[in-house]
Amino acid sequence: MVVAIRRLPKRERQKALMALLDENPVLTDEELAQRFGVSVQTIRLDRLELGIPELRERLKDVARRQLDPIRSLRQDEVIGEIVDLELDRYAISILDIGDGHVFARTGIARGHHIFAQANSLAVAVTDAEVALTASARIRFVRPVYRGERLVAKATVVASDPERNRVRVETRVGGELVFSGTFTVYRAARDAQREAGGIADADRH
């Protein structure tokens, strides 16, 4: 569960709300209400006063942005929906956890879906015709459940002509649920058969 921050005066809350939605426009009113420790109705009133559209309209705005084209993967090979991308800098994707992602008995998401979203985003952000994950150091912070929305952000923290080091943080409603650092190599097409994908993944 997201721990609500200290309740802020209205002016401070609205300022923080604008900053939060600028960074993460896919947060729902319910997630925002929990984040700020107020009612959903209060969040809706804040949005109206600030001229911030509802989630559906914000998603349309994100979709209309001019994204860099993915070079290293086909669109259908990316796990989740990429909503923002600047090659060799950063990328953001969202993944809604449904019945097909979870264990039937517990409703908890299988870890490989969470990892796959982060890994494919680290590859997608890399500016290369062929990009291969060489290593990944990952950490699952807390379980993810059916009905939750994963927002993954990949940031290229180091880059050279041969590889990128990519930090990925995945959140649910602003709460960190997964993090990983990926080393992604830019490979020639004939190296694709030799590399064979992920070389190793160290979980800690």
Results as ranks from 00 to 15, higher is better:
Ile94Lys: 15
Val40Ser: 07
Leu48Gly: 09
Asp84Arg: 12
Asp76Pro: 06
Asp29Tyr: 00
Gly37Tyr: 10
Ala33Trp: 06
Val62Gln: 03
Ala19Gln: 13
Lys15Tyr: 09
Tyr90Trp: 08
Leu85Arg: 15
Pro69Trp: 00
Gly98Leu: 15
Ala63Arg: 14
Gln75Ser: 09
Asp96Leu: 11
Ser120Asn: 10
Met18His: 07
Gly111Tyr: 14
Gly37Ala: 03
Asp84Phe: 13
Glu81Tyr: 13
Thr106Trp: 15
Ser39Ala: 08
Val123Phe: 00
Ser39Leu: 03
Asp22Leu: 10
Leu50Pro: 10
Arg47Tyr: 01
Ala122Lys: 01
Glu23Val: 15
Asp68Gln: 03
Gln41Cys: 11
Gly98Val: 13
Gln41Val: 13
Gln14Thr: 05
Ala63Lys: 01
Ile70Ala: 02
Leu17Phe: 08
Val40Pro: 06
Asp68Ile: 11
Leu55His: 06
Glu23Ile: 06
Arg110Gln: 14
Asp68Thr: 07
Asp96Phe: 07
Ile82Arg: 00
Val40Met: 02
Val38Gln: 00
Leu87His: 05
Arg56Cys: 08
Ile52Trp: 05
Gln66Ile: 13
Leu17Ile: 05
Leu55Ser: 10
Leu45Asp: 13
Leu21Lys: 06
Ile92Tyr: 06
Asp29Gln: 02
Thr28Val: 06
Ser120Met: 03
Leu87Cys: 08
Thr106Gly: 12
Ala124Arg: 00
Ser72Ile: 08
Arg105Leu: 11
Asp88Arg: 07
Ser72Arg: 02
Arg110Lys: 15
His112Ser: 12
Ala16Met: 09
Leu73Asn: 03
Gln117Ser: 00
Glu23Met: 13
Glu77Cys: 07
Gly100Met: 14
Val78Ser: 09
Gly107Gln: 06
Asp61Thr: 13
Gly37His: 01
Arg105Met: 01
Val38Ser: 04
Ile43Phe: 10
Ile82Phe: 08
Ile94Thr: 14
Ile92Thr: 11
Val38Thr: 01
Leu55Arg: 14
Ala63His: 04
Ala118Asp: 05
Leu17Gln: 08
Glu49Arg: 11
Ile70His: 04
Ile70Lys: 00
Leu20Gln: 04
Asp22Lys: 11
Asp96Ser: 14
Leu20Lys: 03
Leu87Met: 06
Leu17Cys: 01
Asp46Ser: 01
Asp46Val: 00
Leu45Pro: 00
Leu85Ala: 13
Asn119Gln: 14
Ala118Asn: 06
Asp61Ser: 05
Val83Thr: 10
Leu87Gly: 07
Asp61Leu: 14
Ile52Lys: 06
Leu59Arg: 06
Arg110Leu: 12
Ala124Tyr: 05
Leu121Glu: 07
Asp84Tyr: 15
Leu95Ala: 03
Asp76Asn: 13
Glu54Val: 10
Pro25Arg: 02
Leu45Asn: 08
Ser120Gly: 11
Asp29Phe: 03
Glu54Met: 04
Ala19Ile: 04
Ala19Asp: 07
Asp46His: 00
Glu12Ser: 13
Asp76Cys: 11
Arg13Ser: 11
Ile108Gln: 14
Gln34Tyr: 12
Leu50Asp: 14
Glu31Pro: 00
Arg110Asn: 14
Arg56Leu: 08
